[in-house]
């Protein structure tokens, strides 16, 4: 597929193989019924929120419920942010855990890992391609929630200037831009979890085990983050900055948490990535 589009290269040059591998990985991932089911479930979250708010007769009291829930009736664009706040702790890690945990273990379980490695791609490249697929899903999942929230908000509620946490208001165009930046922030937030999922996936041939372990780890990390006795540990937990995207809703934007989050996730990628490489390159592929 994408191999056709790549430039003609001398025989034996590997990048072409890598790109075609990535292309086939992405097309397999996004043609799966499971992937679509997960994306649809994520898209349903903002719709549920918006419909529930629309149908409820009592107005939501300010300060109750998730962020901005009380302001949805005034401005539909808040549905996207509220839905992201709701999805970040559980629903997004759940779906990421399924995709990242399945990366290697799924192929091993189906017996296709051997055939993938028969191609002259090498194990490192396969690992990178698998990780890239998981990252693509992170982005797709986040954008799905944001887009579905924005759409249902526009359909059900009036749309106007958006109030930021600082009390300043911004226009619709800038609010769309900020939603996109928030989607980027959450995608970055989930990169560490994806790397952990990939690592666990190299240790087992049972994909369900890797998925469950990844999801459990994301919950454990968040529980630890809520224990004040462990505050020395908090800055090192991969979920520590997950809700820090609120800083993008301040005026002016505070980029500190974005940077800290990116640095932390990069650390997790480096550690889990090298561990996954060590494990996977030494793995006996029997099936």
């Amino acid at each position: 597929m994408s191999a056709d589009t790549s430039k003609p290269l001398a025989p034996g040059v590997r990048p072409a193989v890598g790109w075609s591998l990535l292309g086939s990985e992405l097309s397999v991932l996004f043609r799966r019924l499971r992937t679509w089911a997960m994306l649809l479930a994520l898209a349903a979250v903002p719709i549920l929120i918006a419909v529930a708010v629309k149908l409820s007769s009592r107005p939501v009291a300010p300060g109750r419920g998730p962020l901005f829930l009380d302001r949805i009736t005034q401005n539909g664009l808040f549905v996207a942010v509220t839905a992201l706040v709701v999805c970040v702790p559980l629903f997004l890690p759940l779906t990421i855990g399924v995709v990242a945990g399945d990366t290697i273990a799924g192929e091993a379980n189906m017996g296709t890992l051997r055939y993938l490695l028969l191609a002259p791609a090498g194990r490192v490249r396969l690992l990178l391609v698998k990780y890239a697929g998981a990252v693509a899903f992170c982005f797709a999942a986040t954008v799905t929630v944001a887009a579905s929230g924005a759409l249902v908000g526009v359909v059900l509620f009036p749309v106007g200037p958006v109030t930021l946490l600082s009390g300043d208001t911004i226009g619709v165009g800038e609010s769309m831009l900020r939603s996109l930046v928030i989607a980027g922030y959450i995608t970055v937030s989930l990169l560490g979890l994806s790397a952990i999922g990939l690592l666990i996936s190299t240790f087992t041939d049972v994909p369900v085990g890797a998925m469950a372990a990844t999801i459990v780890l994301s919950v454990v990390s968040q529980v630890l983050d809520n224990l004040p006795q462990l505050d020395w540990l908090h800055p090192w937990l991969f979920s520590h900055h997950w809700l820090g995207f609120a800083d993008l809703l301040r005026q002016p934007i505070d980029w500190t948490s974005f940077g800290a989050n990116a640095l932390l996730q990069a650390g997790y990628i480096a550690v889990c990535g090298t561990l996954a490489y060590a494990k996977f390159s030494n793995k006996d592929i029997l099936s």
Partner: peptide, 26 residues
Amino acid sequence: QIMDAMAERDLIVNGKDAWFYNSADN
């Protein structure tokens, strides 16, 4: 701007006017 988790409290002083805004209860 007092930066709380997912919220913010603002005090704006501009000449004779001063505003206090609390995002938690809008």
